[in-house]
Amino acid sequence: MNIAYWIIAGLLALFYFYAGTLKVIRSRDQLRPMMAWVDRIPLRALRALGAVEILGATGLILPPLTGIAPSLAPAAAIGFVLLQTGAIAVHLMGEDRRIALNAGLTATAAVTIWLAIRL
């Protein structure tokens, strides 16, 4: 289970660290081709969302790695489930039916919760 956690949590952390970094440093025009919803939220909220994703990715890796506050890992994964639930709602309210990635990330984060609890 330990190896499974590190593989799944590592991939999830890489994805969120990358996506969060893009949201923090790129302009709306640069993000629009990848994320059609960026015009529906304020820029500050977009930047905050990116920061939350970066912090969550860090929360999946550092606490179990260092042994300091390892309970933060399942908390970060729970946060990603909630984040993706909100993302699915945003997509559906904007009549964007492309939610397969969001559903996959939700499922991956749910598996990560289960694995993190068993660390």
Rank of each mutant, 00 (worst) to 15 (best):
L46P: 00
T21Y: 10
L82H: 04
I7T: 14
E53G: 04
Y18E: 10
L101Q: 09
L12D: 05
I54P: 04
A77N: 06
L22Q: 14
N102A: 10
A110N: 08
A109G: 07
R44S: 10
D96Y: 07
V90M: 13
E95S: 14
A73L: 07
R98W: 14
G79P: 07
I99Y: 04
F80P: 04
L62F: 07
D96R: 12
L62E: 02
A45D: 05
M34S: 11
M34N: 10
M1V: 11
L22S: 05
L82M: 12
A103Y: 13
L83F: 15
P64R: 01
A77V: 05
W37Q: 10
G67W: 03
R97M: 12
W6P: 14
I8N: 15
T85Y: 05
M93D: 14
Y5D: 12
A57T: 02
A13T: 09
A100Q: 14
L49Y: 06
D39F: 11
L49W: 06
P63G: 00
L105V: 02
L14A: 15
L12C: 11
I99M: 00
T66V: 02
P63M: 00
A89M: 11
A89I: 14
P63Y: 00
I88P: 00
T108R: 03
I54V: 12
A73P: 13
I68M: 00
I88A: 02
Q84G: 00
F17S: 07
T66F: 03
L65C: 02
L62A: 04
A9D: 10
D96N: 14
G59E: 01
D96H: 06
A116D: 15
L60S: 10
P70R: 00
G86H: 01
A36V: 08
M35F: 13
R97N: 15
G86K: 00
V81D: 03
L11W: 11
A89R: 08
I54S: 05
A77C: 10
G50Y: 03
I78E: 04
I88M: 01
R40L: 08
V111Y: 13
A57K: 02
Q84R: 01
V81C: 04
L105C: 01
F17D: 05
I25K: 09
G56R: 03
D39W: 09
P70M: 01
